[in-house]
Nucleic acid binder design. Structure first.
Lengths: 204, 204
DNA sequence: TGTACATCAGTGAACGCGCGTTCACTGATGTAC
DNA sequence: TGTACATCAGTGAACGCGCGTTCACTGATGTAC
């Protein structure tokens, strides 16, 4: 199963996965390079053969997350073509689905404090993900009369903000915030009302 | 100016303020009890005369934040009465204004990982703040035909999510996320479109 | 096929650091007489 | 008003801890002849 048989086989990826499950388990604060190394069955010093240090390891988690995220959004977008509306709604749902399925990735992408401009690789991955939602918004904006059409990047930002807010406030198992509704329902209805406000859905 | 003249005067509050400015400066990660003590001109050990420990100090920052937050929202709500619509919009604006003016409080309330159920005091303060937005949503919901009226707590949650998302994604000076629009404008237009979707604003 | 060598992934010990927390103390403040 | 005493806010030294990182090393792997 390991790609090749050096000492470990594929330590680099094993470290990424150890880091991800650790972040998922202990939250953004609880992650340490030493424990990630231990989980991968290796001395902390071994990490430095594959990463520049702690931050670099987290950045790689984020990078892989953005790639997966972009794939997921792309898939959602493609699947509902050629309906601009359905595609747009699907990307919103994909956002939440990604956050729930891959909390480790999500946290390293959005809550770890790592700048997405840290390296060109990371910036590219982040940009690719963002571009898909903006593309979906752009398609959708064609269906709004040109004179009362807000910039597509604006409503892509609105949807992003609502999605992110739903994740942070209602889709984490923080015992403090009692979630009044299932996050999926909350986001679905929120986006629905918003799109009605844009005149893209008939009032039913 | 100090309330009384023990040794320090009012160390407890001085520590809270030192902690707040430290959190604002260094982010959720950078805060340490020791440095907060140093900033207040005092030995780390002195903190334990006033707080149980590090977490307890942050919790007090959050508690004070929720109280200020509630006051601000209440003020916004009252000011625009009796218009349910104007009052609701004002509370949304107040959310963002609070986050921008008091980043230290905001971070300890929403990003520090402190559960708002940590103590009854903290839970009460958090609840008071939440209740005001829900009250505003309740008022507003009266203007929607009863048969197509979503639960008030649902759109209070929608607005909360969008506001929080705007703060996290666009109102922080993270060099990664290039904000396409001023956060205030983004939230204002977002809430506007949403309320239009609810049929509470005429399409203009 | 077998031997000598180069490579380099991972080791293990050590480092300096700053953290949160504890403890016996001290000395300024407020109070009783 | 003055003295003796109790209180208790803040001190300073010490602790154990786990962190991220460094370094000279070792020993399994892959390669050249």
């Amino acid at each position: 199963m390991p790609k090749r048989g050096y000492h470990h086989g594929n330590l680099r990826q094993a470290l990424v996965e150890a880091a991800l499950s650790l972040i998922e388990l202990k939250g953004r604060t609880g992650f340490t390079l030493s424990e990630a190394a231990k989980r991968a069955g290796v001395t902390p010093a071994a990490v430095y053969r594959h990463f520049e240090g702690r931050e670099d390891l987290i950045a790689e988690c984020a990078r892989q997350g953005f790639l997966m995220f972009a794939d997921l959004m792309q898939h959602a977008y493609d699947k509902y073509q050629p309906s601009a509306l359905a595609a747009f709604e699907a990307t919103g749902r994909a956002y939440l689905a990604f956050a729930r399925k891959n909390p480790g990735h999500y946290i390293s992408m959005f809550e770890s404090g790592i700048s997405s401009n840290r390296t060109p690789d990371l910036a590219n991955a982040a940009h690719r993900a963002r571009a898909i939602l903006e593309r979906a918004a752009e398609d959708l904006s064609q269906h709004i009369p040109a004179d009362k059409r807000p910039p597509a990047s604006m409503f892509s930002a609105h949807i992003l903000a609502m999605s992110h807010g739903v994740v942070e406030l209602y889709a984490r198992n923080t015992p403090g915030a009692t979630s009044p509704f299932p996050p999926e329902e909350l986001l679905e209805t929120g986006i629905g009302i918003y799109l009605r406000g844009l005149g893209l859905i008939d009032p039913d």
